[in-house]
Design a binder for these strands. Structure first.
Lengths: 333, 333
DNA sequence: ACTGTTATCCGAAACGTTTCGGATGAATGA
DNA sequence: TCATTCATCCGAAACGTTTCGGATAACAGT
């Protein structure tokens, strides 16, 4: 409502030039301590807020991070993206309060790179967080080619060329699988994503490694994201001639689908059938029996992502890798 | 990587002035059809993207909508906010592809208005979507006082002074409660939020109205957000001298807590105990027995929010109200 | 031939900030 | 005393866009 207060106003009120006010607020050394403090105090008092557009126009930096979600890739079908988004916002606020997170959704795959392009060329953001990386990831290819700063959540086939933060899925699934083996299970089925997500391959590898180390034959099935596909796969497996006695699932959703299929076939999860899920659902969503799962802190991951995305570009790309924690609850007896 | 392409480049390539190029792209009438098309074709070909910062600086409009989430208010404890956020992003993309959604989280209550102020004065957005309204809502007071455009999801005590979109919670809970009454239940407990959310009052009213219309005595309990508090309340109620035979819950989370408490006390939900929840969890999260619930489309609500938030200010505030759909599944027999 | 109208284009200012290259005056060195 | 340095400050240009107020030329009416 009141006309926004600008540097010019401050300058005239203080009897200084716009330049000096700007440099005082910027904390530069070539303005005396006395005036610097006077300016800062006054700016604070009247609640001066620098106009972002002007600053951006001049500096070319936008103080904002882009996060683009893709409907076609199933980004909305589970809670992963939204949890990451919220944690990212929080981490960004903590690390750099004056920065913004700009979120956009893109309905179709073919628009995805256009959206990145639009954001870059339009000067909307000065870096991206790219989630749900695939092995061959066109977004990564595009961003690498354009030289625009970004950090991924999840590795890719070109992981040495860009900054990334990831969870050590191979290790996590090795431990989950080994736990089941050590508990005496021999027929352990792995329910994985049907996708080229990098983490899907990592998960598969962890399961395979553990099974082969124990000289057991790996059996894995791939499902679409979502409950229904996993439910069907679980039903089929459980009604087969040699049903598995344990399931390792790439997501908690899958695990819940297995629980339902198990219950309907008269099995009691945790007693007749062991189930381990992974990292989708917030802790408060527990149901009875509670699900054993692999968990990683979204907060830590997000903090690392923000740290890397705010870091000045140049030098060799940096990486952070977090370990899963194996939470043993009811469904593993 | 390549120096960004500007109006000046277009102009010199085309042998026109910057003014004409700008007006051609803007679709103005005072540039000949021939040149207008020539300019647009060329801009398209080279992939010109107007610099947002410059445009914003000049016009004062930002083409972006702000959405501020508050950690202290429990905005992250359930899926409501994230679902709304995702649907909002989608709706904004559909309605106005060149607009952005700017998301920020604020950790403490006392920072909340500061964040709004920072966004307004810094020229970051030109309108807000305010969710989870309370009856006495300081955000609404602040925005009304500052004259800044916004639309709320949920009414407030000053609902006639601002644009809002809401779900008709009173009507929904009347119907849910009446359904249970019509099914023969007499002892129906209402598990409501312990808060001053506007919708909490609406829900309570719906339950009360239905109970009193049937000459039954309303019994409601208020819980903190989240599973634990509702679980405890349900346990206490079920072990009382005259336990309820049906629960109406203000959220699906509460309903799931009731289901757990019921199962532990040896009751079978849907058989010994009827339960109706409301609007928190995506459909794929069903568990067995599946939960009867009140549902409203987040997509429709978000589309309405975006429509109102993009509408030019001025005139009397506009409103949209959506009805709940009562989904009868297993937990109501 | 003169005026008025219309269609089409353009110069220049402005938005609020940052920053380069000085300008001013006082203090310092000889 | 004069040149040098230093600490402070400032003018002006620039970022890329929009928009106001013309400018130009062609064309119509008389």
């Amino acid at each position: 409502m009141p006309p926004n207060i600008t540097l010019k106003h401050l300058a005239s009120q203080l009897g200084l030039s716009v330049t000096t006010v700007s440099r005082a607020l910027g904390g530069f050394e070539d303005v005396s301590v006395a005036t610097r403090e006077r300016v800062q105090a006054f700016a604070n008092e009247v609640g001066y807020q620098p106009n972002q557009s002007a600053r951006r126009l001049k500096t070319g930096r936008t103080s904002s991070v882009g996060y683009i979600m893709n409907g076609a890739q199933g980004d909305f079908r589970d809670q992963f993206n939204t949890r990451l988004l919220v944690a990212l916002g929080q981490a960004l606020h903590d690390a750099a309060p004056e920065h913004d997170l700009i979120v956009t959704t893109v309905p179709e795959d073919r628009d995805e790179l256009d959206t990145y392009k639009r954001f870059i060329d339009g000067g909307k953001v000065d870096s991206f967080v790219v989630a749900r990386t695939r092995i061959q990831d066109p977004r990564v290819d595009f961003l690498l080619e354009s030289g625009f700063p970004f950090v991924t959540h999840g590795r890719t086939g070109r992981a040495d060329e860009h900054a990334w933060v990831d969870t050590n899925a191979t290790d996590g699934f090795v431990r989950a699988t080994r736990y089941l083996i050590d508990s005496g299970h021999r027929d352990i089925l792995f329910l994985n994503f049907f996708s080229d997500l990098y983490t899907a391959v990592e998960r598969e590898k962890g399961y395979h490694d553990a099974m082969q180390a124990a000289e057991l034959t790996p059996m894995s099935r791939h499902c679409q994201h979502g409950y229904a596909s996993a439910y069907q796969a679980a039903c089929e497996a459980l009604s087969s001639a040699t049903p598995p006695t344990a399931f390792v699932c790439a997501s908690d959703i899958f695990a819940y689908a297995v629980m339902e299929a198990a219950t309907e076939s008269g099995r009691v999860p945790g007693k007749d059938l062991a189930i381990i899920g992974a990292d989708n659902l917030p802790a408060q969503m527990y149901r009875q029996p509670s699900l054993s799962t692999l968990e990683v802190s979204f907060e830590s991951v997000s903090q690392a992502l923000i740290e890397l995305v705010l870091a000045p570009a140049g030098g060799t790309p940096r990486h952070r890798c977090f370990d899963y924690e194996l939470l043993l609850r009811d469904t593993t007896g």
